[in-house]
Design a protein around this nucleic acid. Structure first.
Length: 441
RNA sequence: GCUGGGAUAGCCUAGCCUGGUAAGGCGCAGGUCUGGAAAGCCUGUGCUCUCGUAGCUCGGGAGUUCGAAUCUCCCUCCCAGCGCCA
């Protein structure tokens, strides 16, 4: 949620950010209309309450002195009627006002590129030596703005979908029988590879000062809507029937809501938390995209980085989160590029977001494997997470970044590490101590 | 699931029985004092607005009442005991 005070004092600031994100002005106009109505009624309400408080106080002293309060009780009753009516009117206005306020997106960091067309994410950097099929070279050079290192390969590697079947590493048909499309049974050494990725990422983040948590996999509505933008996300979430509970789509949400309604001691900041959990996503708006294999699925495991920090430090921490995630992919030796996501593609919460896109040689594309965002005080305000500042309590800033999402990273390994004959997959060196084997064949 | 006890500000606690409009301590910040500090003392320390001799706030909601932290009902969560259980 954005800062209502700042919005009242400085609407131009928001008008500019909304425009860059492709939002119209109508919400702003409607907000100010409702807000001024609300404030006018608040004035009336407060004076009525004041009147009531004075009369009740006088009744109190009369009763204590053993005297009869006379008609005062009736006066209060009629004031109460007027108060109830006003309160009902205000509740209605406030409802509409907060519905608008909740859809308003965060301000943008000055470095966020403004989207112009479909594809305006800004190239930031490239790492690695990509295996590029000659037919994909143009796309590769364009995506890296000529900064990408590569070796040309003869033919395209085999897609992970075919390898899963030929190497008996997953059973997608039976998964669709029992659960539907976009589910999978991982099998054999791929299960151990997944566990290795989880354990590796947990150890990596522990060494970098993160406390590890395994959060609840379900959240109630209050926590979920505080941690995310329910208007946009309700189509991605699974709801438990007959319960006020939603399956999490990322451990970001239970970690963010962990401190909901709390005021933290400044000495406890920053809080670095790494979450490990399955993520459940309906993928309702993704019909036809990545329908085969395990690239886009309803359920996957993710290790997430999360930071609660002082507002002055959040931009430095965004770089820290990005560097942690980059180091993981460097250690896995998977070539990638980083992009600065443009204004129109940012979620409402984020003031800036970097994506890490791994190179998938079989697809001939860079595809998202990590998202690192600074939500500034937007998420903290919705959740009521503050710290005790020198001049009163202030909202903390929150940041989140993927460390490893297992299924996509497994696909990246399968595409980047397969042998030329397509019969073997090498395990990245850094994972071998965790898998106990160095090849899948 | 059953029975009982709880939830008060960043933390700890009083008030509840017997309704009269949140007391105190700790911590933190500022001031005073000091060469500097500690101690002591003073002030501040939930939220809102149009900043006042204003309004709201005692886990959430509803009710009774002129008036509810306090009484009644419903809900959530925590603790203890019992039951069930991987």
């Amino acid at each position: 949620m954005i800062d209502i005070h700042l919005l009242r004092e400085n609407p131009e600031l928001f008008r500019k950010a909304f425009k860059a994100r492709g939002f119209g002005d109508s919400a702003l106009e409607e907000f100010f209309t409702l807000d001024s109505q609300w404030r006018a009624k608040l004035k009336d309400l407060n004076s009525l309450r004041h009147e009531k408080n004075e009369i009740t106080a006088s009744i109190s002293s009369l009763v204590k002195a053993g005297k009869n309060p006379g008609s005062s009780k009736e006066k209060v009753k009629s004031i109460n009627d007027r108060i109830s009516a006003l309160e009902a009117e205000m509740a209605e206005i406030e409802n509409s006002r907060s519905r608008i306020l909740n859809t308003m997106p965060n301000l943008l960091h000055e470095s966020v590129p403004v989207c112009k067309g479909d594809e305006n994410n800004q190239f930031h950097n490239f790492w690695g030596t990509a295996k590029v099929y000659s037919g994909d070279l143009d796309e590769f050079n364009q995506a890296t703005e000529g900064n990408g290192k590569y070796t040309l390969i003869e033919g395209k590697p085999i897609s992970h979908v075919d390898l899963l079947a030929s190497m008996d590493l997953a059973d997608l048909d039976r998964a669709s029988k029992v659960s539907g499309a976009r589910f999978y049974y991982l099998k054999n050494r791929l299960v151990k590879l997944e566990l290795a990725l989880v354990n590796y990422a947990v150890d990596f983040l522990s060494e970098r000062g993160f406390n590890v948590v395994e959060p609840p996999y379900m959240l109630n509505l209050a926590s979920m809507s505080g941690a995310t933008d329910m208007e946009t996300f309700k189509d991605t979430l699974y709801k438990m029937e007959g319960e006020d509970l939603y399956l999490i789509s990322t451990s970001e949400h239970p970690i963010a809501s962990m401190y909901m309604g709390e005021t933290l001691e400044p000495s406890s900041l920053p809080l670095r938390i790494a979450g490990v959990s399955p993520c459940f996503r309906r993928e309702a708006g993704a019909h036809g995209k990545d329908t085969k294999g395990i690239f886009r699925v309803h359920q996957f495991t993710k290790i997430e980085q999360f930071i609660f920090c002082h507002p002055d430090e959040s931009w430095d921490f965004l770089e820290e989160l990005l560097h942690n995630s980059e180091d993981i992919f460097r250690n896995l030796e998977i070539p990638y590029r980083v992009v600065n996501v443009c204004s129109g593609e940012l979620g409402n919460l984020a003031a800036k977001k970097y994506d890490i896109e791994a190179w998938f040689p079989a697809q001939g594309k860079f595809r998202e494997v990590v998202s690192a965002s600074n939500d500034t005080d937007y998420q903290a305000r919705s959740l009521g997470i503050k710290f005790r500042g020198k001049s009163g309590n202030q909202f903390v800033h929150t940041l989140n970044s993927t460390a490893v999402a297992t299924t996509r990273t497994i696909v990246a390994i399968m595409e980047n590490y397969q042998s030329e004959d397509g019969k073997k997959i090498k395990i990245p060196d850094v994972l071998v101590p965790y898998t106990g084997f160095d090849t899948i064949s």
